[in-house]
Design a binder for these strands. Sequence first.
DNA 1: TATTGTTATACTCTATAACTATA
DNA 2: TATAGTTATAGAGTATAACAATA
Lengths: 145, 145
Amino acid sequence: MRDLSHGDDAAAVNSLRSAVMRLGRRLKHQRVDESLSPTEMSVLGTLARCGSATPGELARKEHVQPPSMTRIVALLEAKGLVRLEPHPDDRRQKVVTQTETAEAMLEQSRRKRNAWLAGLAAELDDEEWAKLRAAAPVLEKLAHL
Amino acid sequence: MRDLSHGDDAAAVNSLRSAVMRLGRRLKHQRVDESLSPTEMSVLGTLARCGSATPGELARKEHVQPPSMTRIVALLEAKGLVRLEPHPDDRRQKVVTQTETAEAMLEQSRRKRNAWLAGLAAELDDEEWAKLRAAAPVLEKLAHL
DNA sequence: TATTGTTATACTCTATAACTATA
DNA sequence: TATAGTTATAGAGTATAACAATA
């Protein structure tokens, strides 16, 4: 395995870290619905990526304690963004599924953030944008490793 | 100004947004001191970038109300991470300056996150890493636009 | 007996409103 | 009269502890 802790490699890593954290923070501020907390949004994102899940699974994925997830799921249900159904095999558990409303809201949220980022990137010159486009799939691979 | 809302450009923007947000979240979880809240860390980062500031300036930069900043600054002072001094020209104001302890902590935090990111990036092949290195300065420019 | 989810309760962080000191 | 900062208080979000239902 490669070592990236020296010289130009280390500088590039440092630059990437700083830029990704700053851009990530600014993207997070572009919100489409102020009434949803960050964790509520994150739960919807997880459901969109991974499909239905039990409250326990969601709590583990969001790094939140089970009682907190109970409350979050109840709030999302009250807002019509998720449905709760009985688990087919285990009567202790429940299955949380997102509604069409939630999917539409997530899509709107993605659009808003994409538009904001595209506005920033439009300030780059052709060569810079080409470098970014070439790196986009690599960044995505990195983010999912 | 360029339009990046169609075709391959739009796909690249979407890919960048998703990857940056996900990587940013994961980087944020790499923390060196669990006892500092996200805003406290962010205030230290701002002081490191911009030098000393008054509580009011910090509140505006962190998008937090003045009373919240009063509390945050008091906590940071109690932890020995900032010093409070009287403002030279205006006796209503105060000047917040970070201590050497805070600088050392921030440096340790950067190191930990760089190491984590370098560990991820080490999984990439040579061509992928070259693309990322080429894009790093562009991402930094984007993050500061 | 172990596990899933809930209820009851407390703590942390931030906000708004009202106040003090200085400009 | 306006501004910088603080104090008092309330609300949102999360945690821990104790409990109920099911495996």
